[in-house]
Every structure is written in structure tokens, then in C-alpha cells.
Write a protein that binds this DNA or RNA. Structure first.
Length: 713
DNA sequence: CATAGCCGCCTTTTT
DNA sequence: GGCGGCTATG
């Protein structure tokens, strides 16, 4: 590492980089060079004599971890530092201290769809109806409990109301299923690690000695369990450095607790605080609207974005007829940019929900624009991929009943439902795993002769394959694919075959990059991977992603679509003030990804779940502080779904420049269509003033005062 | 025991 | 609109 390189840093960045010992809080706004500070900090630690081995950096995504490793290497700091997400770190810890944590080290990691299977089973076992105790609701409740480190026993002690008492049962059953299958879900990884550190001083001390310097990025999005892990790990030495931006906290729904970063100084009284407020990314006008928007949030520390770039092109807010027009408008705009020589990789389209990508995709296909969708788990969710992985999982963890049930008769090998039911009954009554019962099937009277032979063949095959548990994973995957019969089964499906080849080459990369490749390690790693991690920044394609996925990225040209009431802010967030603020932060994150060109759009009509609906511009558009008037063109805006002109009362048609009625929060109002309601929020924008009303019908609407024709009650 | 077809359910964001 | 589970049929 050449000292010269440090000269590129600003004074405050240097302060964060060279503060070696003790707690450090880096409050870093968007585009402030935070990632750079962290990588330089790793280099500076090593320069000052710290062994890479003693450094542990925690990132928010696997992709961020990968990038940080690369950057650290280019900076000249040798590898060896542990850089990963919280979840990956937990897997390593739990595997190492499995016995103390009371688990088996070859555990499977259950993803959302695995969880759903188990929770459905658990709800059924508890004889509850799935309307009031829907799988989604149960999972959410259990996830919250786990995030707060409440295990079954401690929850049992505090559950007093009806719902909680039922939930205890479901929770207990669910955990029992996971334990029997030797599986942990995402939340377990965190909870078990936190409890391990909490309950075992030896482990806590040992790990504190191993990781003498702890760095945590995106600290604003840590949940309680992660907070606890960080605190316990650092309790041995106080060398904890966290970075984050409360204005970019967008994972509250997943248990993220913004108080973790807000109260850092209380947790670590001798903490040094460095603020990085300068923004090196965006033009001054982009930052201006971001600033205006985020200033509306009540629950926040005042903070300004200080631009270092001059003003650039105006931010464009476009109103389209419907989502098709919007998609084609954006495609046309991108074509224009491309003709001006802009690389497609410098362009991104952000949206609130994944389903919105379809319309954009179709328009891009028609316009022959290459794109890549950065999506959650599409690849690993594919049937053929899940099939292959299920075979592999069975080899690593024979107790993984979910995996076994998936492939026991896929491809069909004459082990049908009746046989499987008998095997399950046998396993249950003898308290053995399903796989174990397969081995004993030969002795079961009720199982048919043919089935017995088929089961024996299956068991034989898996036992043979098990001999390859250590060593390269790619070759094993191919072997499994061929031997299992999946190869023959998927032969007619070219797409499936290609996906499997992709899986095998990914495994080959793993084999190359890992010192001691093993199936178990591979499976546990890829369980934590998502497609977003494979987002390729080098290919020349437009990137399509949700606003959540956009976190941590930056682009020259950004398009944010669907700025409509109910979409952004999302309808599920409108009721709650805190959630509304989070939606605003989400929009803020999107805006601040843009370096030079920012296009924001909304549509007047949008098809949602197959229904064409009239859309109302998002209240956020009025908060940007730019002159946004949806009716600027010939477009006429009604506040509701009716087509009638209620211009009869406010007959002054030329009221554009006149002040409109003002409202205050809490006021009762009457609307012709929605009836009685209470004012939630009023934004005074002169003639374009907007009012958010919660109607007694349960709906919350954002209305333009000049069209809404509200009367005060 | 396998397959096709139908019905009903869910649908925000993700490690 | 899409997927998973169930049923009826071969």
C-alpha cells in the first residue's frame, strides 16, 4: 500500500480511515465514498500491523462482500480478512461451535419456500384454520420473535393472549420440524449465533480474540439479533466500526431497527463520530430534490447533502397515460441515450415491486434493448435447480426430509404416494428419519414387492454418491445429475439443461476459489446467495431492479417508475406513519443512485393484478420541490375513479395561481365519493396542495385539493 | 402409480 | 396473473 493513495481521501475520510482503536461511528450520506473508506480502513489497519486474519468486515449482501474483497486486494492489502454478510459469518460460527450451540454441523439452510412448507405442516398439526393463521402471518410473527432472540421456551412464558398462545404452539411445532430435518432458517442462523455468544463466555472470548477488529457496513439495517452479535463480538476489545445512514434504512419490515445506529453513542460512550456529508456522486440538482424529499420525514436527525458536483441536467418528471406508454417512453429515451454514445451498463430502471419489471421487459424486447433483471432468487427457485440441489442436500444431510420428499420419486421411479405415506408413518412411529426408514423398507410387510426393490435401488444410489462428500463439488454435481436420472428426465428441456450447466460452472468456480471445497460448505454458502449477487456490472445491458436491490449501487442514468399512490408509497405502508417514512427513504435511496440523469415517472392508469385502475400521482412527487403539475398538459386529473367533472362549485376555472383551501392534520372532511374521513397530512404547495385523507371506508387517499372538492366538517 | 387439468389461493420489499 | 395442490382419469 503506497501512502500516496491516501492523498486521494478528504480530511473526514482520513479521520475515519486512520482511527484505529476503539468504537467508531461513520455517518455517511449517499455517494460520500463510504465503501472506499471501509476498504482503505482495512488497508490502514493492516499497515499499522494488524493481521488480516484478525479483521472481520460485515456487509449487507454477498455481492458487496465480493466487491470489497476485490477492492481490498487491488489496494494491496493481502487477503485473509474475513469479509462476508452476517448470515455467512453465522454459518461459519455455528458450524465450528455446533456442539456447544446444540446443533449438527451439517445442517441444511431453509429458504422462504422451504419455510412455507414447514409452517403449513405446523399449522395443520396444531389444528388451526389457515385463514386466521395464514402461513405468511405465522412466518412473519415467528421471524419477529427470532429477530428479538425469543426462543420457544421464553415465548411460552410470556404468551398470554389468545393469538400468542396459538402462536406458541405453531412456533414449537415449526421448530420441531426444523430440528428433525436438521435445518435452520435464515433467522435461526442469527438467533442461534447470538444466543451462543450470549450463553458461552468461552466462545465469545475466543471469537473476540479471532476478530480483533470489527467493521459493519449498512449498520442502519441491522436487526436486534445482528446488533447483539456485533455487540458481543466487540465486547472483548471495543474495536467496532460501523457505517451507515439512517436516511437509507429500508429494511424495517425485516426487523431492521434504526435505533441501533441512532443509539450507537449510548452503547459505546467513548465512540468517535465521523460524518461524511459531502456527496461525490450526483449533480447538485439531483441532491436538491433528494434533500427536499427526505426533509419531510419527521423522525430523523437533520442532515444535509453537500454537493461537490455542479448543477447538471434537470430532473425529469414524466406523466404517462398508462404503464405501456411509460415503458415505451423509457425505451425510446434509452434508445436516444444509446445513440448519444451512452453505454447501456450505465443505465438502470428502478421500481417498487418485482412484477413491474414485466412491462418494461416487453417494451425493451420490442425495442431490441438488451437488459438484465436483478432479481431475488429466480435462478435458485427453478424446478430443475431445486431438484439437483435436493439430491445434493440429501447426501450432505440425510435428515433433510423436505429435500428427500422432493426427489424420492423425481424422476418417477415407482415410489408412489401410498408407499411414501407408509414410510412416513413408519418413520414417525419409530422416531427415525424418513431416510432411515427407506433403509428398513425391506422389512416392512405393508410395502409392495416392487416398491421395495425401487427403494433399495434408490438407497443404493445415494449411498454410492455419498462417497464423494469431500473434494470438488462440480464433478459431484454432474455425477449426481447423471446418476439420479435427472439428466435423462430433463433431456427434452433445453432451457433446464442450460440452467444446470450454469449451476455446474458456478460450482466449478467455487471449487477453484475455495481451499478445501466440500459439498456441505458449498450448499450452505449458496443457500445464502441470491441472483442479485450474480448481477454483472461488466456486460452492456440496462439493469432492471427493485428499489431495494438498488441499495449500494450507482448509475449515470436512472429511471424510477410508478410514482403512484399505493405503489410508492405502497398501499401496505400508507396506514402507518413510520412505514410511510420508510417508503420515502426508499425513494430517497433510488434518487441518490443517480449520478447525472434522473427520470421519474408515473402513469395515469395502471393494470394491477389484471385490473385496469386509475392511478393518482404519489404524494412524494409534490415533495421534491420541483414544479410538478400532473395536469400541465391536456391531461385532466380527477381525485377519484369517477369521470365526472365536479367543477360546478369551484367555478373559477382559472384557479391555477390561486391559493387553495388549507387543512390541518386530524381535521374531519367530507368527500363526495369516499364519504367521511380524517386528514392525515397536508402539504402546502400553493395551487398544487395535496392532502392525504384516511377515509372511514378504510382507504387512505392522496388527493389534490383543487380537484378533490373536500368540505370541512 | 402417473399425468393432466382444474380450482383456489396469494400477491412488497430479501438475507 | 401465476403457482401449488388436489382430483379425476388412464
Amino acid at each position: 500500500m503506497h501512502s500516496k493513495q491516501y492523498d486521494q481521501l478528504t480530511a473526514s475520510q482520513k479521520k475515519a480511515v486512520f482511527h484505529i482503536e476503539g468504537p467508531l461511528l461513520v455517518l455517511a450520506g449517499p455517494g460520500s465514498g463510504k465503501t472506499r473508506v471501509i476498504t482503505y480502513r482495512i488497508a490502514a489497519l493492516i499497515d499499522s500491523g494488524v493481521k488480516p486474519y484478525n479483521i472481520c468486515a460485515i456487509t449487507f449482501t454477498n455481492k458487496a462482500a465480493e466487491e470489497m474483497r476485490q477492492r481490498a486486494i487491488t489496494l494491496g492489502s493481502s487477503g485473509g480478512a474475513h469479509i462476508s454478510t452476517f448470515h455467512s459469518l453465522c454459518v461459519r460460527i455455528l458450524r465450528r461451535y455446533a456442539a456447544i450451540a446444540g446443533i449438527n454441523s451439517n445442517f441444511s439452510i431453509y429458504d422462504a419456500s422451504d419455510q412455507t412448507h414447514c409452517i403449513k405442516q405446523a399449522v395443520k398439526d396444531c389444528d388451526l384454520d389457515t385463514t386466521n393463521f395464514s402461513p405468511a402471518r405465522m412466518l412473519e410473527a415467528i421471524s419477529t420473535l427470532k429477530n428479538n432472540l425469543t426462543d420457544v421456551d421464553s415465548f411460552k412464558a410470556q404468551a398470554d393472549d389468545f393469538f400468542s398462545k396459538k402462536l406458541v404452539n405453531v412456533y414449537a411445532h415449526y421448530q420441531k420440524l426444523l430440528t428433525e430435518r436438521n435445518a435452520l432458517d435464515f433467522d435461526d442462523l442469527l438467533m442461534k449465533t447470538a444466543l451462543l455468544l450470549q450463553n458461552s463466555h468461552d466462545v465469545c472470548k475466543e471469537l473476540g480474540n479471532r476478530f480483533k477488529f470489527l467493521l459493519i457496513d449498512e449498520y442502519q439495517d441491522t436487526n436486534h439479533a445482528q446488533y447483539k452479535i456485533a455487540k458481543l463480538l466487540a465486547s472483548n476489545h471495543n474495536n467496532i466500526c460501523v457505517t451507515g445512514d439512517p436516511d437509507q434504512s429500508i429494511y424495517r419490515w425485516r426487523g431492521a431497527d434504526i435505533r441501533n445506529i441512532l443509539a450507537f453513542e449510548e452503547d459505546w460512550p467513548d465512540a468517535t463520530i465521523v460524518k461524511l456529508e459531502e456527496n461525490f456522486r450526483s449533480t447538485a440538482n439531483i441532491l436538491e430534490i433528494a434533500d427536499n424529499l427526505i426533509a419531510v420525514n419527521q423522525k430523523r436527525k437533520q442532515k444535509r447533502l453537500i454537493p461537490t458536483r455542479p448543477r447538471g441536467k434537470d430532473v425529469v418528471v414524466e406523466v404517462y397515460e398508462d404503464e405501456l406508454q411509460e415503458a415505451h417512453g423509457i425505451a425510446a429515451e434509452i434508445r436516444k441515450l444509446a445513440e448519444q454514445g451512452v453505454s447501456l451498463r450505465d443505465i438502470a430502471v428502478f421500481y417498487r415491486v418485482n412484477s413491474m419489471s414485466r412491462t418494461i421487459e416487453e417494451a425493451f424486447i420490442r425495442s431490441k434493448l438488451p437488459y438484465q433483471i436483478v432479481r431475488g432468487v429466480e435462478f435458485y427457485g427453478r424446478k430443475e435447480i431445486r431438484d439437483v440441489l435436493a439430491y445434493l442436500k440429501i447426501l450432505a444431510n440425510p435428515n433433510d426430509q423436505l429435500a428427500l420428499l422432493r426427489i424420492i420419486n423425481t424422476p418417477a421411479r415407482g415410489i408412489g404416494k401410498t408407499t411414501i405415506d407408509k414410510l412416513r408413518d413408519y418413520a414417525d412411529s419409530h422416531h427415525i428419519s424418513l431416510y432411515e426408514s427407506l433403509k428398513r423398507a425391506g422389512a416392512m410387510v405393508s410395502v409392495s414387492k416392487a416398491a421395495k426393490a425401487n427403494i433399495a435401488t434408490f438407497v443404493n444410489m445415494t449411498e454410492q454418491l455419498k462417497k464423494n462428500l469431500t473434494g470438488p463439488v462440480a464433478s459431484l454435481t454432474r455425477l449426481v445429475f447423471d446418476q439420479s436420472g435427472l439428466a435423462a428426465f430433463y433431456k427434452p428441456d433445453q432451457g433446464a439443461l442450460e440452467n444446470i450447466e450454469e449451476l455446474i460452472s458456478a460450482a466449478a468456480i467455487y471449487d477453484q476459489q475455495t481451499e478445501q471445497p466440500s459439498l456441505l460448505d458449498y450448499l450452505q454458502q449458496i443457500s445464502l446467495f441470491s441472483d442479485a449477487d450474480s448481477y454483472n456490472t461488466t456486460v452492456d445491458r440496462v439493469a432492471l431492479m427493485t428499489l431495494h436491490a438498488a441499495k449500494g449501487l450507482e448509475f449515470e442514468n436512472v429511471f424510477i417508475i410508478g410514482l403512484e399512490d399505493g405503489l410508492l408509497p405502497h398501499e401496505r405502508s400508507i396506514e402507518d406513519r413510520d412505514q410511510l417514512e420508510e417508503e420515502r427513504r426508499l425513494f430517497f435511496v433510488g434518487i441518490t443512485r443517480a449520478k447525472t440523469n434522473l427520470h421519474i415517472s408515473c402513469a395515469q392508469y395502471r393494470t394491477i393484478r389484471g385490473q385496469l385502475l386509475r392511478a393518482i400521482p404519489s404524494q412524494f412527487l409534490y415533495e421534491l420541490g420541483i414544479n410538478f403539475a400532473p395536469s400541465a398538459k391536456e391531461n385532466h386529473y380527477d381525485s377519484d375513479d369517477e369521470e365526472d367533472d365536479d367543477a360546478d362549485i369551484t367555478d373559477d376555472t382559472d384557479d391555477t395561481f390561486q391559493e387553495v383551501q388549507k387543512f390541518t392534520s386530524g381535521q374531519l372532511v367530507w368527500h363526495k365519493l369516499f364519504g367521511l374521513g380524517r386528514v392525515h397530512e397536508f402539504m402546502n404547495m400553493g395551487a398544487n396542495s395535496v392532502v392525504v385523507v384516511r377515509f372511514n371506508t378504510g382507504q387512505t387517499k392522496t388527493l389534490m385539493v383543487k380537484y378533490a372538492n373536500l368540505s370541512k366538517q
